[in-house]
Amino acid sequence: MHAEKLFEKMKAIIERAGYPLLSSYKVDFYVHDREYLRQNDAPGVKFMWIVRESGTYLCRLSVAPRVNAEVDYAIDIHDANRREVYLLDRDAGTVKLLDDTAAKRRLKEFDYKVGRCTISRKGERIAVADIRLTSWTNGKPPTGTVHCHTGQMQFPLETLYALRSLAVYFVIEATHSLFTATEKIFIEGTDINELIAAHPQPVIYPEVLARGALHQGSLELLAA
């Protein structure tokens, strides 16, 4: 499993003798970072990882500015002498130390573009998101469900992971609260987690690419 091999290389860095960082909040790495790697373990995926004296930050690159925001902010607010920034390449299994200039440049490179309710990949619109929120009930805060209308069911695994991340941010932006939970995410009526679990990990089927061109007009109508 690529994610686990990458995690072991990250662990070798922070556990080497005399390593000056991550003296506290180690759960960020051993629990949260490990799970985040597992939840985004797909061909072509890269990450940026910040190690501080207290805790870590980890994000998948190339999805959208809102996904990178926390890591970008962490680079700005934390003393460069008290943190390290790494580029993680899932396919190559490499963990490379970056300077701030290189890190900032990578944080501005995106495969996806997000509009008010649309998601495009490398210039082609691939989904229109319908965000549905529950109401406050008996003191229970609202939660969100996102229905992605795509005109297709087959996507590369990395795109499914990207859609899942972006759906969460759509819900957060709709309620202006980081604490709003996303209950369900659907792709054309199918739970996205079911699609991920059953995915054979191809890039994308040629016949799906042909169908995608036919559905492009319908997506534009949905987004209007």
Rank of each mutant, 00 (worst) to 15 (best):
residue 109 E to L: 10
residue 121 R to M: 12
residue 126 I to A: 02
residue 196 I to W: 09
residue 155 F to E: 09
residue 189 G to D: 13
residue 112 Y to A: 04
residue 190 T to N: 06
residue 167 A to E: 14
residue 8 E to P: 00
residue 217 G to T: 13
residue 210 A to R: 15
residue 47 F to R: 03
residue 49 W to D: 05
residue 206 P to G: 10
residue 124 E to N: 09
residue 222 L to K: 01
residue 81 N to V: 14
residue 108 K to N: 11
residue 30 Y to T: 01
residue 30 Y to R: 08
residue 196 I to R: 15
residue 68 N to E: 06
residue 50 I to P: 00
residue 20 P to A: 04
residue 28 D to G: 11
residue 150 T to Q: 01
residue 58 L to D: 02
residue 126 I to E: 06
residue 69 A to N: 04
residue 110 F to W: 00
residue 108 K to V: 04
residue 20 P to W: 07
residue 87 L to T: 02
residue 61 L to Y: 02
residue 133 L to M: 13
residue 120 S to N: 04
residue 53 E to T: 13
residue 72 D to E: 14
residue 122 K to P: 03
residue 30 Y to H: 06
residue 215 H to K: 15
residue 14 I to R: 05
residue 30 Y to Q: 10
residue 54 S to N: 11
residue 74 A to S: 15
residue 57 Y to S: 09
residue 162 A to M: 01
residue 77 I to D: 11
residue 149 H to M: 07
residue 1 M to R: 04
residue 160 L to P: 09
residue 117 C to G: 09
residue 125 R to D: 09
residue 168 V to W: 11
residue 102 A to Y: 03
residue 216 Q to T: 13
residue 196 I to N: 15
residue 1 M to S: 15
residue 43 P to C: 08
residue 51 V to L: 12
residue 220 E to L: 04
residue 137 T to G: 00
residue 159 T to P: 01
residue 116 R to T: 12
residue 203 V to Q: 14
residue 24 S to C: 05
residue 158 E to S: 01
residue 29 F to L: 04
residue 21 L to G: 01
residue 141 P to V: 05
residue 139 G to R: 02
residue 81 N to Y: 10
residue 48 M to A: 08
residue 142 P to F: 01
residue 167 A to N: 14
residue 4 E to W: 06
residue 195 L to K: 00
residue 10 M to S: 05
residue 88 L to Q: 05
residue 169 Y to H: 12
residue 52 R to G: 06
residue 126 I to H: 02
residue 143 T to Y: 01
residue 184 K to Q: 09
residue 124 E to A: 11
residue 121 R to E: 13
residue 117 C to H: 09
residue 41 D to Q: 10
residue 177 S to C: 01
residue 50 I to W: 03
residue 221 L to N: 09
